[in-house]
């Protein structure tokens, strides 16, 4: 609270003892409350600190023994011989996340445009509810569905078809086994769809109505108005939403563990089995013995942690800007 300036000293002397002055005692309550609240807020910082510290301390033996660069660039993972290279996991994580973004982004934008610009109110309400439902389904249930529905469908229908038509690309070569980069990427796409959609809807809603109405008044069709006014305005926010979705995809564990095949190998084909950072942690951590094995897994966690930290920070910076420019007219829509 800013201090109010007192009057001149003569008048202050005039102001004799009164019921107005018990500030010292009473202000204690406010001060105690402020201290307690600050303490509670600091917990968030403590947690962030603890996460980084614990991962780092667990990972240190592995970094010391293996070296940071050889560890990150090595492609051999063999706990029996204490040989650890992170490359297959980095690769698997990146490829599955890339598939997820490539599939989810256009669908999410289409869905968001449908919700904000096209759907009548009741449809919008219903579809928004369903998309939220998609976000509420636990990851292990996605994995279950993926394993028994998505994988057989990919193996019997999609992958043979892709191989037949696009087999000249290395991406779509090889035997259709169902589990692999494609299956994991698609399930990830489904899981990050609600995130990207929700943020895109939010930024599209904040696009100023005046520009869009201006375009419509010039005789533009609805699509032209969207392309001229809404999309350019929302671009930055949608990029932020995509990064946020990417962050989720990188860290997603269960569904990927169940659908990726869990082979510490690197393949060009999306049909092949691979492995990801979270998946190897999920599979090996409980049974890991020895500081180096635990350390190597913790090092992978640290990589994951650092990447998602950076991505989330970037996404927040990108998304916050349009939110501040919010125009009341559309914000209430």
């Amino acid at each position: 609270m800013p201090r109010a300036d007192a009057g001149d000293p003569a008048e202050m002397a005039l102001a004799a003892p009164s019921t107005l002055r018990r500030a010292g005692l009473r202000a204690l309550g406010d001060r105690a409350f402020a201290v307690a609240l600050t303490g509670l807020g600091l917990w968030v910082l403590v947690i962030a600190g603890v996460i980084v510290t614990v991962c780092y301390r667990l990972a240190r033996p592995a970094f010391a023994k293996l070296g940071v660069l050889p560890f990150l660039a090595g492609s051999d993972w063999n706990p029996v011989e204490d040989s650890y290279g992170a490359l297959p996991f980095l690769y698997g994580t990146l490829v599955t996340s890339a598939v997820a973004i490539l599939v989810a982004l256009p669908v999410a934008i289409g869905l968001a445009l449908f919700l904000v610009e096209m759907a009548p109110a009741w449809v919008r309400k219903l579809v928004s509810f369903l998309v939220e439902l998609l976000a509420a389904i636990p990851s292990v249930v996605y994995g279950l569905w993926g394993l028994f529905v998505l994988v057989p469908w990919l193996r019997e229908t999609v992958e043979p078809a892709l191989g037949r038509w696009l087999g000249f690309l290395p991406l779509f070569r090889g035997p259709p086994i169902g589990v692999g980069y494609l299956a994991a990427g698609l399930i990830l796409a489904l899981m990050i769809l609600p995130t990207i959609t929700a943020v895109s809807v939010e930024v599209l809603r904040t696009a100023p109505a005046t520009q869009r109405e201006g375009a419509l008044a010039l005789g533009a069709t609805r699509w032209e108005a969207i392309r001229m006014a809404s999309l350019p305005y929302a671009r930055r926010g949608i990029v932020g939403a995509t990064i946020l979705g990417l962050g989720r995809a990188l860290g997603e564990t269960m569904a990927v563990t169940m659908l990726l095949g869990n082979q510490p190998e690197i393949h060009a084909s999306l049909f092949a089995a691979g492995y990801s950072l979270p998946a190897v942690i999920a599979n090996e951590f409980a049974e890991a013995t020895g500081d180096i094995h635990i350390g190597a897994l913790a090092a992978l966690a640290l990589v994951l942690c650092g990447t998602t930290f950076a991505l989330n920070a970037a996404a927040r910076l990108l998304i916050r800007v349009p939110a501040e420019r919010r125009t009341p007219a559309r914000a209430s829509a």
Binding site: A48, L244, I281, L297, L304, F309, N312, R316
Partner: peptide, 17 residues
């Protein structure tokens, strides 16, 4: 900012912690 960023930390990492 920390709370926002922590919201995106993978749950498996929290398991390790």
């Amino acid at each position: 900012f920390c709370a926002e960023v922590l919201g995106g930390v993978p749950s498996i990492v929290v398991g390790i912690v």
